[in-house]
Design a protein around this nucleic acid. Structure first.
Lengths: 297, 297
DNA sequence: CAATTGGTATGCGTAGTTGCATGAATTGGA
DNA sequence: TCCAATTCATGCAACTACGCATACCAATTG
C-alpha cells in the first residue's frame, strides 16, 4: 500500500461527496452534523492539498469542475465503503450480548448514567445492564460489579483504573429559600444555618469546618444516605447542601452559594478487573462510559 | 445516502488499515506521517465511536479481534478508493499546463518562493512559472503578472485579494560584527551606528526614527534596492538592517538586535484578478501559494 | 538475571479546526 | 425594480486533537 498517497484528510473527501450529492455547502453541513463554514473550508483545503480545483463557485449554486467529477467518483467509492464499515460495526456491536453490572454512587447512578445507558442501548441492545447504586466501595473486589465509578483512587494491582477527570462541587440552596433568608455575602454568614447532610452527619460537619463554616450536627436538620433524596431536600428549600456542578445544569430552582470560596474538587475514576477488560462486552461498556463521562455533561 | 452512518471520523478508519497492515501503532504512525500516541488515540476513539473492540493489546504486539477483521475489510476498501482518489487528482493536476506569472518583492522571490515552487512543480509539472521579482506595485493592473504577493492592502474591485498573515521583521546584524562592536543594550546605543538600506535611504532613516534611533543618511553606508543584495551585506557585517524573521530561520551568522523593542509588523497579501481566479491554472497556483505562505515557514 | 530494545500508555503545552456571529452576494418573486 | 430569502465568505473565540517528553511494559540478548 502506498501510504504517502493516503495522507490527505479523508474527512475532506467525505465533505466533497456530501456537497456533490446535496448541491450546497449548507445542505452538506446539515447532513454531516457540521456547519457551513467548516464544510467550505474542508473543500478548499482538499483543493489546495490535491492541487486540483474541484468546485466552481458561481453565485448561489456550486457546480463540480471536470476534475471534480473525476475525483468525486473515487470519493463516492470511499463513502460506500464507509457506509459498509458503519453497518458492519453496528452489526458487531448489536451482537454483543450478556450481563454487565455497573456500580456507582447513587448520585451518579441517578443523574449521570441514564443518558449514557440510553446511548449504550442504541449501539448494543442485547446487553443486559445492571446498575448498582451504592455508596459502599467494596463491590468490585467481591465481584458484585463488573465496572465501578469511584471518587477515590482504587488500590490493588488486579484492578484496571482510569482517571476520567476532576469534577467540582459547590454548596447549593433553593432559590426560594435564599429569597426568604437572604443570600450570604461571606462564609461567616453561613454559621448556624440549616444544612442538608449526605450520609454521615459528622463528616458533613467536618467538611463545612474545612471551609471555615462552624456548625453542629444539630444544624443538619435533614439527612439522607440516599444522595438523590438529600438533593431533592435541598431543591425544596430545607437547607444548604453540596452538589456536583455537572448535575445542576439547566436547573433554575437552585443557586450556587459563594462558589468562589466553597469549591470541592473530586476525581472520577472508572475501574474494572484487569482480566475483565479483555472481554469485548465489558470493554465496550467501559469505553463508552469513559468517553461519555470524561467530557463535561 | 445515509449520512448519519458516515459521520464517524474517516481518518480513524485510515489508522485502522495502517495498523492492521503494518502490525504496530508506531509503524502505522510513521507511514502516515503522524505519531504513535495519535494513532493509538485514533484507534481507541474509533472503537468507542463504533461500539466495537477492534484490537487486542497483548504486550508488545497487537492483534485484531474478530470484529476488527470484519471492520478492517470495509476500511481497506475505503483505503483503496482513497488511493484511487489520490491518483486521479494527481493526474488532473499534472494535466494543468500553461504560463503563470507571479510578482513578488525580490526578498520574497528570493527566500520564500523557491521551496513553494518546487512543491508546485511536483504536483503540476506542466505549468510554466514566471517569477517577476520587483518592488514596484503596478505589475498586476497592467497585466504584467497573474498573481502578486503584496505587503499593502490592494485597492480596486477588479482584484481578488486574501490576507495570508501578519509577518514580523526585526533589526539584524552579523554575529561577527556584533562581536567586534559590542551588542547594544538599548535603542539609544544604536544612534550613529552603520546601517544597511533596502532601497531608499530617506525611508530607512524615517523608519529608524520611529523606533527612536536617530540617524542620518550618511550613516547608511551601504544601500541596495535589491533586497537580497542588501541582506547579504548585513550578513557580511556591513551594518544593521531589517529582515523578516521568517527568512532568518536556521541562520547562525546573524542575530536579532533588541527584538522586543524593534519589531515591524507587515501584512502578506495574495492578489489576483477577479476573473483570473476562475481559471483552474491560476486557482491552483493561488491556492498552493496561499496554503504554503500562510503558515510560518 | 540484568540490560537492552522495540513498543504502548499518559500528561501537558500548543497549534489547528470548529462553531458562532456577521457581512456580502445572488436569485426568485412581489 | 426592489425586497426577501437563501447561500457563501470571513473574523474571532473556544475547544479539540496533535506532538513532545516521559513513564511503563514485554520480549529478546548477553
Amino acid at each position: 500500500m502506498n501510504w504517502t498517497k493516503l495522507t490527505f484528510d479523508w474527512n475532506q473527501a467525505r465533505a466533497l461527496v456530501a456537497v456533490a450529492d446535496l448541491g450546497s455547502l449548507s445542505a452538506a453541513a446539515k447532513a454531516l452534523g457540521l456547519t457551513q463554514p467548516t464544510i467550505g473550508r474542508q473543500i478548499s483545503a482538499l483543493e489546495a492539498d490535491l492541487g486540483v480545483v474541484l468546485v466552481e463557485r458561481s453565485g448561489r449554486s456550486l457546480t463540480l469542475t471536470v476534475s471534480g467529477r473525476e475525483v468525486l467518483e473515487a470519493a463516492r467509492a470511499m463513502a460506500e465503503a464507509g457506509l459498509r464499515l458503519s453497518l458492519v460495526a453496528s452489526g458487531q456491536a448489536q451482537a454483543l450480548a450478556g450481563p454487565v453490572s455497573i456500580s456507582a454512587s447513587d448520585m451518579f447512578a441517578h443523574y449521570a448514567l441514564p443518558p449514557v445507558l440510553r446511548h449504550l442501548q442504541a449501539i448494543a441492545p442485547a446487553l443486559e445492564i445492571d446498575v448498582i447504586a451504592s455508596n459502599e466501595i467494596s463491590d468490585l473486589k467481591r465481584r458484585e460489579a463488573d465496572i465501578a465509578i469511584r471518587h477515590v483512587r482504587p488500590t490493588g494491582s488486579e484492578l484496571y483504573a482510569r482517571l476520567l477527570r476532576e469534577a467540582t462541587a459547590h454548596l447549593y440552596a433553593a432559590r426560594s429559600y435564599l429569597d426568604q433568608i437572604g443570600r450570604p455575602g461571606s462564609v461567616a454568614e453561613l454559621t448556624g444555618k440549616n444544612f442538608v447532610g449526605f450520609g454521615k452527619r459528622a463528616e458533613m460537619v467536618q467538611y463545612l469546618e474545612m471551609y471555615g463554616i462552624s456548625t453542629t450536627e444539630s444544624d443538619i436538620r435533614f439527612n439522607s444516605a440516599n444522595g438523590a433524596v438529600a438533593w431533592e431536600a435541598v431543591r425544596k428549600g430545607l437547607g444548604f447542601g453540596f452538589m456536583a456542578v455537572d448535575f445542576t445544569r439547566g436547573l433554575t430552582d437552585v443557586e450556587p452559594v459563594l462558589p468562589n470560596e466553597i469549591s470541592v474538587k473530586f476525581p472520577i475514576w472508572l475501574v474494572t478487573h484487569r482480566e475483565l477488560h479483555t472481554s469485548p462486552r465489558i470493554r465496550l461498556v467501559f469505553d463508552v462510559l469513559a468517553k461519555a463521562l470524561e467530557a463535561q455533561p
